[in-house]
Write a protein that binds this DNA or RNA. Structure first.
Lengths: 112, 112
DNA sequence: TGTATTCATTGATGATTGTCAATACAATTG
DNA sequence: CAATTGTATTGACAATCATCAATGAATACA
């Protein structure tokens, strides 16, 4: 019974995929991009040199606490950085962060 | 009163960011990558030519229904495609899908 | 035809999340 | 110092999600 290794699709050594810790870090980056509102915020920031928080409320159509919550999540993921100048908070995109995260997924994958 | 446009950080024309519909589509792609388990699955698939579902349960350490649920979400986002051959479901990565989604965010952003 | 196997679906549950009103904090201005 | 303005935090709530046990559907094999 069973123990037949002929009609199995399975190989002996299964690929390990990503390290569990690294998967958690990477998922945080993509989680930050997984929300339509945050995507609009990120695109707004990427489309400008830098932009302050008050300029984000109108184009994305959300309340100020919501904007603050989303920018904090983008910043926590390392996708943007903020600098406080006076009363205003200015946001810039961290160049290459998103691309590096994508690249990390297939670090060991054979190139196409 | 007010109407003082001197001490405002705001510009008149706020960047529109991404189209709302496109943001929904893109967020679906990144939502698919926003889970550690799905990242491991995606990496496992990317690391092989193609792999069948039964080979995914062991490396990610989840139950069969959970694996099926995750592969369905990755496929729904267009990141992988599945082909049924006999009893087995074989998965392949759709090349360039993730990169294209990233690129779409800054379609109109100035290059660095 | 019947049995075993692989994958998909359903139902249920605990956890996470997006949102806003209210409030607190910080910094400029009078 | 007091008032004003931009931002962050808290609390609460509805919605979504990840997970698994149980079940169903489809295919291969005897």
């Amino acid at each position: 019974m069973a123990a037949a290794d002929d009609n199995l699709c399975c190989v002996d050594s299964v690929p390990r995929g990503i390290d569990e810790d690294q998967a958690a870090v990477l998922s945080a980056v993509f989680s930050a991009l997984a929300d339509p509102v945050r995507l609009q915020i990120y695109a707004c920031i990427a489309a400008t040199e830098e932009i302050c928080s008050c300029n984000l409320e109108v184009p994305v159509g959300k309340s100020q606490p919501t904007i603050s919550h989303h920018t904090a999540k983008l910043a926590s993921a390392g996708l943007i950085v903020g600098e406080r100048r006076g009363r205003w908070m200015w946001w810039r995109v961290v160049p290459g962060m998103a691309e590096a995260s994508l690249h990390a997924i297939r670090a060991f994958a054979p190139s196409p």
